[in-house]
Computed example of a mutant assay.
Amino acid sequence: MKKVIGYSFLLLCLVALFFAWKFLGSATAFNESKKYLYIYTGNANQKAVMQSLKDSGFLKNPGLFEMVAARLDVWKRLRPGKYEIEKGSSLLTLARKLRNGSQTPVNLVITKLRTRKDLAALIGRKFETDSATMFAYLINNDSLQKFGLDTNTVMTSVFPNSYSLLWNSGPQRIFRKLHEQRTKFWTAERKQKAAALGLTPEQVHTMASIVEEETLRNDEKPTIASVYLNRLKKNMNLGADPTVKFAIGDFTIKRLLFGHINSTASSPYNTYRNKGLPPGPICTPSETTIDAVLNAASTDYLFFCAKPNGNGYHAFASNETDHFKNAKAYQQWLDSLNIR
Rank of each mutant, 00 (worst) to 15 (best):
L122E: 05
I282E: 00
T183R: 11
I339F: 14
N218C: 09
V293W: 00
W75I: 07
N262H: 09
T115E: 07
H179R: 05
K307N: 13
D322L: 04
L98A: 02
G312C: 04
S131R: 08
Y38F: 09
T264E: 03
F135C: 04
N168I: 06
V204S: 11
L113N: 06
R217E: 11
A20T: 14
N274P: 08
K60V: 01
Q192A: 15
P171H: 10
F324W: 10
L78P: 13
L232K: 15
A27S: 14
K22L: 11
V293K: 11
L17S: 15
L10R: 15
K3P: 09
A48Y: 07
C283H: 00
A120R: 04
P62Q: 00
L216S: 05
F19W: 08
E220D: 11
A194S: 13
K2T: 06
N168V: 12
N168T: 08
N100A: 10
T104Q: 07
I290H: 01
P80F: 00
L144M: 07
L94N: 04
L24W: 09
V204F: 15
T133Y: 04
R182N: 13
L14I: 15
A194D: 14
Q203W: 10
G81P: 10
G276F: 10
F303G: 05
A317R: 04
T206M: 12
N295L: 10
V154M: 06
H314V: 02
E189R: 13
N161W: 03
A20Q: 08
L166G: 07
G198L: 08
K22C: 07
A95T: 03
F304T: 02
G198H: 03
Q51R: 08
H260G: 08
Y301Q: 07
R114I: 02
T151S: 13
E84T: 02
G101P: 06
Y137Q: 05
R173C: 08
A315F: 04
K254W: 04
E220I: 14
M155Q: 06
S266M: 12
